[in-house]
Amino acid sequence: MRKRASAFAALASVAVLAAGWELGVQAGVQAGVLSPAGTAAGTAAGTSDSSGAASPGGAPAAAAPAAAAAPSGTFTGSAVQTRFGPVQVSVTIAGGAITDVTALRLTDRDGKSVAISNRAAPVLREEVLSAQSASVQNIGGATYTTEGYLQSLQSALDAANF
């Protein structure tokens, strides 16, 4: 390559790399390493266990609580690149201990970033919310005809309660 072309190429490359670097820094700031998020958002997301099965093997960098004055609240870690895509978790800290860890971002098979905090995942029957049937006032199910089972179950309840 001629000298002038080499110089120009070097300059242009440095400019491009610098722009990329700058964008990367900004993205990092947005993701917020150890930036406290509103506790309201934290509790809304943190009412349930994060499903560990959803992030196979990826090592999410959970924001470790600062060693000094133990903060309280919900903190969002930076998004970490795994082979499945970006993973981001938030931790809820109360009284100096981690009380909840929630995965905020995961990618599905198509590489799309999804908020997994509300996806329907496989559960065992024992894991579902349940109560004794006696304490249930209403039975829900697919639409039934007047000859259906449910009506009798419901009417039994109705009779029992009225």
């Binding site: 390559m1 070097a10 490359s13 790399l17 990329g20 990367g24 820094v25 990092g28 998004a79 690149q81």
Partner: peptide
Amino acid sequence: LADTLQVLSVVSVALVIAIFLADGGAVR
């Protein structure tokens, strides 16, 4: 023309590295 093409190919390499950096790769 030759210079331009050469610069473009070098910059293309810089661009893909910049893509990695822009995604926050520098800290990983």
